[in-house]
Design a protein around this nucleic acid. Sequence first.
DNA 1: CCTAAAAATGCACGAACCGTGCGTATCGGA
DNA 2: TCCGATACGCACGGTTCGTGCATTTTTAGG
Lengths: 173, 173
Amino acid sequence: MTTLSIDRHDLALLDALQRSGEATNAALGETVHLSASQVSRRLQRLQEAGLITGYAALLDPAALGLDVIAFAHVVLERHGGVRTEAFEEGVAALPEVLECFSVSGNADYVLRIVAPDLAAFSELMMKRVLRLPGIANIKTDIVLGKVKQTHVLPLEHIARPSRPRRGVRYSAG
Amino acid sequence: MTTLSIDRHDLALLDALQRSGEATNAALGETVHLSASQVSRRLQRLQEAGLITGYAALLDPAALGLDVIAFAHVVLERHGGVRTEAFEEGVAALPEVLECFSVSGNADYVLRIVAPDLAAFSELMMKRVLRLPGIANIKTDIVLGKVKQTHVLPLEHIARPSRPRRGVRYSAG
DNA sequence: CCTAAAAATGCACGAACCGTGCGTATCGGA
DNA sequence: TCCGATACGCACGGTTCGTGCATTTTTAGG
């Protein structure tokens, strides 16, 4: 496990990076007021510490023909089984299921699913999702419109020393 | 608007890129069996066509102290107003609200929200979300466990000519 | 307050990477 | 089979990257 302390430069860097991950170190340095070499060194630390888990190209779902988004609320049968494992593995194997969380509330799981169109979505639900083991019932919310969608995590809650200090430490192991 | 046709090399490229957006053109070319120069040219086309909307660094929410994820199901009041705009703008201005969709079903909107902990989440809901205009009621599902979470869109549904062809075209304007 | 250790900074330099021009090869249509 | 169009790999100049080094700034202790 690596441990490090974060200062305001690191926060500005993380914020800039999750918005434009393709920026050069020089460009990043200009927005956060650091030299390119410092940006390079800081990024190396942040990555080793596990704060930066990777980089990704963001694709436009609509341009790829993925026009349907839906949230599926799954309730499992309750005959005290190990069926949850089978269900979770089955879900993880479906590429159209982008997310699956177990949740509090009425449902056991919430799934975020994408599909090309309603016909494909229907077929996916009937032939793949509903056939997963242990399902009692599913209620589905189909997305009608996108008000907001971002991958940018809020960083405002993190204390911002002007310099790294002992005490406030962030880690990932 | 730019229009282009996609072949299997482009698909392989998009798939590789959304998994590791930091890979060099040479490395990408190795996985998709193309030269680095071709990768460069294809990426340029895919970006101009709008299929690639950007690049981002992926951060670890837990390492940043964001331990709470929740889905909020919002029902608006129904006195035929333009309050929906005010609500949507208010939601868009909250950095903790990563996503907001209008949906079919019982609720009007589904919001995905992150927060450092339950105390902060509670305060966020009470002081910011519930004070948005036009809200009738909110039901919240708090995430207990993460079974799967990915940003990788499925591409299996796209036809895969060995070469670009006229007819099958993808676009983004 | 003063001093010394530690850490961060900017610059410089060699290596790696990127985009483009160009000649060649391959594909599709007639 | 022939021709136009398109995709391909190679090579090259410009850019970017990471690291070593000397300097400056900050922290902690006396």
